[in-house]
Simulated scan of single mutants.
Amino acid sequence: MSLEALFSSPVVKPSKQGWLLGLVLVGLCGCASDKSVKKPEAEQAREHVAPEPIRPPRAAHEKVTEKDTDGDKKWDVWVYAVEERGADGEARERKVRKEMDINWDGRVDITTYYDAREEREREAMDLDFDGKVDSVFFYEKGVNVRRERDLNGDGKPDEWVFYEKGRLARKERDSNGDGRVDYWQYWENNQIDRIGEDLDGDGTVDKWSRGTPAE
């Protein structure tokens, strides 16, 4: 029975009509709410994320030291530190971040982040000089273990490069922007050993092929 027929039926008394109307409206609102909240995985993956700025806002407790490394009387390196107490209880300054302008255009191009031991932990780069992070290197105990790149400028990484003992081991790529890796390169002895491709978008390799020597 349609909603119009239900509420115009003489069998349904006025008091019950109001009760039924409220019940139906609650159901409709619930359905509409579910539809607005739940989005397909592919749609969620394609949602735009604001790219990370290459120069984050300075925190109130951070102290900055500016340097002119090329003698042009313009700052091109900024070192940020915070004050904290060491194990001996003595106050000390710990370096947390360093920003560099490597092409001397007055804007930051590389930002390096340091861990509690002042070892390099993360290094962000602005490759196209638009003020946004395009590539990030990750370090463990000062050694590069991974790199991520945002190739299409949507604020999310599309390419991942993994290193083992300082050597390139694997590359992964999301080539269609759906949030899933669909292309893999495995490297041996500094050259591509094999390539995997996901052809149906389920996140698993459907086709393997042998690599060719790297140029």
Rank of each mutant, 00 (worst) to 15 (best):
N144Q: 08
F129I: 10
R147W: 06
K35P: 11
K132W: 14
H48Q: 15
I195D: 00
K207F: 02
E197C: 05
D174Q: 05
R117V: 12
A45T: 07
D193A: 00
L168D: 06
V77M: 04
K171R: 13
K156G: 06
D178E: 01
G177Q: 02
C31Q: 13
S9E: 01
P213R: 00
S15H: 14
N103S: 03
R167T: 12
I192N: 02
E119L: 08
D202N: 09
V136N: 05
E119K: 10
A214F: 10
E43P: 10
V24C: 01
L3M: 04
A214W: 02
G153A: 05
Q17P: 08
V24F: 02
F129L: 13
N190F: 04
E93N: 09
H48I: 15
T69C: 06
F7R: 01
S209V: 10
P10I: 02
D101F: 00
Y113P: 12
S33L: 15
K38Q: 14
F7G: 00
D150A: 01
G203I: 02
T65V: 06
K132E: 13
A87N: 10
W104T: 15
V108P: 04
Y186V: 00
V108I: 11
T111D: 01
G155V: 10
K63Q: 14
W184C: 05
E83N: 12
V205I: 01
G18P: 04
R92A: 06
A5R: 09
D202F: 06
T69W: 10
F162M: 05
R46Y: 07
D200S: 00
K35D: 13
S8N: 09
N189W: 00
K98E: 09
G196L: 07
E93R: 07
P40V: 14
L127K: 11
E197I: 08
I195K: 00
E99G: 05
W78I: 11
R107F: 03
V205N: 00
G153H: 01
L21G: 15
N189A: 02
K73Y: 11
E62Q: 09
I54S: 12
D101W: 02
A42S: 15
E90M: 14
A45V: 04
R149E: 07
S2I: 05
E121I: 15
S36T: 12
K207I: 01
A59G: 15
I192M: 02
I192S: 02
T65P: 04
S36C: 12
E90Q: 14
K165N: 10
